[in-house]
Design a protein around this nucleic acid. Structure first.
Length: 260
DNA sequence: ATGGCGGCTCGCAGCCGA
């Protein structure tokens, strides 16, 4: 089973290249973030035409998450329990025995912004939710844009980023607490030391200079981590004309998929 | 160098992102 996550930064704008990517990469499951489209406008037909079931939770302008799969998605759940959130950032569903969560963690804006404590509270709620999920879904994937670079090696210029949102110690501690609950950071552990970055700023030729961050993650519970064969960033997508600023992260897992 | 780019909106300027 091939599971991917991609922050598309507007599904409307990226739909043609997303369809191309589905046709070439052929993921079994794709988690999307920053769809920026209200549910009534979601392009369901583009997914079904390519053989994908899709569930979504969106709003205009900001945020928005979705999950597409080559077969039926069931037991769809919106949001995090006990954490009412008007921002559309969390969607989860089951596919062939795997529970998949598509997550768009708040950015935080800056350490002195009101959005920063919101981010930390959101992460606390995710940690509690991931423990609950794990107790009923042993095969669990937390995939998405975490807006956290877990270590300095996930940052092209750690000194320049010091003291900034995405790299601050409280965020990194929150990330470690989530993984310590029973998850493997697949890109780092299975993808290896040279797994690279997943996001590059649109400005200043950041992608060309490989000045990026690793902030998109696939966290696998133990039954999936044990059979994960590959995990990598598909950098080609970032080099596309009019790209998203994020590239897809892909995990290949020895788990029965639709074609098996 | 806090801007640079890009996407969004009851748009044409200001917001948010990372």
């Amino acid at each position: 089973m091939k599971i991917a996550t991609w922050n598309v930064n507007s599904l409307r704008v990226r739909l043609p290249q997303l369809e191309q990517w589905l046709a070439s990469a052929k993921p079994d499951v794709l988690c999307l973030q920053e769809t920026k489209v209200r549910d009534s406008d979601f392009p369901v037909a583009a997914f079904s035409a390519n053989g994908y079931d899709v569930v979504f939770h969106g709003q205009p302008s900001y945020n928005g998450v979705a999950i597409a799969a080559r077969g039926a998605l069931t037991d769809v759940m919106v949001g995090l329990e006990g954490f009412p959130d008007e921002q559309c950032r969390t969607l989860s569903a089951s596919y062939r025995g795997v529970r998949v969560a598509s997550l768009y963690v708040p950015n935080g804006t800056a350490l002195d912004s009101p959005r920063y404590p919101y981010k930390l509270e959101w992460l606390r709620a995710l940690r509690a939710q991931s423990a609950r999920w794990l107790s009923c879904y042993p095969a669990l994937v937390l995939a998405g844009d975490f807006n956290i670079a877990p270590e300095d090696k996930d940052v092209y210029d750690p000194e320049a980023w010091q003291g900034s949102v995405l790299v601050s110690e409280p965020e990194r501690a929150a990330f470690r607490e989530i993984t310590a609950g029973g998850f493997t950071d697949a890109l780092r552990v299975i993808g290896g030391e040279d797994c690279g970055f997943s996001w590059w700023d649109y400005r200043a030729g950041a992608f060309r200079r490989d000045q990026g961050l690793r902030i998109d993650h696939i966290l696998l519970s133990a039954p999936l981590a044990h059979v994960c064969e590959r995990c990598y960033v598909d950098r080609n997508a970032r080099g596309h004309v009019r790209p998203s600023d994020h590239a897809p992260v892909v995990a290949e897992i020895a788990w029965p998929s639709a074609g098996a």
